[in-house]
Amino acid sequence: MTETCHSQWQYNFAFLDENTKRMLRRALLKAVAIPGYQVPFGSREMPLPYGWGTGGIQLTASIIGQDDVLKVIDQGADDTTNAVNIRRFFARVTSVATTSSTAAASLIQSRHRIPETPLRPGQIMVFQVPEPEALRTLEASEVETRKLHAHQEYGLMHVKLYEDIARFGHIATSYDYPVMVNQRYLSSPSPIPKFDNPKLHMSPALLLFGAGREKRLYAIPPHTRVESLAFEDHPFTVQRWEQACALCGSHDSYLDEIITDDAGARMFVCSDTDYCQQQQESKA
């Protein structure tokens, strides 16, 4: 069945045509050269709607090679709809090996999380970004936000954090928490929980960010300083849980709260399914 499909209409390797991939790689080189800077690119029509990861898919398609091993996660899990579909898409159009193991993967596409297992040099993470402009909620004009980046005028971002403290008593922004990359560009880390922000700092792996609808990509190269914004008297903190994971007993992973019946019973489990499984296996 698969073979007849292939003979009837052959897709190019990794779906995109070679010229598009070259355009993307050129933009990626610029992004790596200027950490945190948003590089415009010609986003293509993809076989799924905007908001489902078209930016991330295009980046992955432009850098994936025959020898790569691909892992795709959505909310930390390998078995959710978006992850399954994107993984199957690349398996079909590239025939590269896929995995759910963070350690075994050379290329990881993610929607909301950075895996708990520490990344290693040589790995590449691709993030699907809905809104690459961290200042957008406060400044609607693209002309103005680009000027703010050019002149490094980032006081505005602190207005948002100020507003958080004034209203909630603490910095209530818990995901997409703004970061300063390489002490120069203010960036949105895509909707990862702020729990994962410290993993961006001096990461040994290359981190690439793609926003398909907004047609922007940016990068955090390995071993780059990434600082989460904060106030002197309200420093940056990450989420902590009183519970341990109900399945693997881990105390230091990011936990999802799951409601288990109609009476309001709930359990906390790791959002990173691969990590959770490893922990369970090592205990068994």
């Binding site: 006081g155 505005l156 602190h158 207005v159 100020y162 004034a166 002197e232 008297d233």
Partner: peptide, 22 residues
């Protein structure tokens, strides 16, 4: 800025000049 508090409005310029103590 109509969508943030009066305090944030007054503080904005100070924050732009680098004050970081809430």
């Amino acid at each position: 800025r109509m969508n943030v508090s009066a305090g944030a409005n007054v503080s904005e310029r100070l924050m732009a000049l680098g004050q970081r103590h809430y």
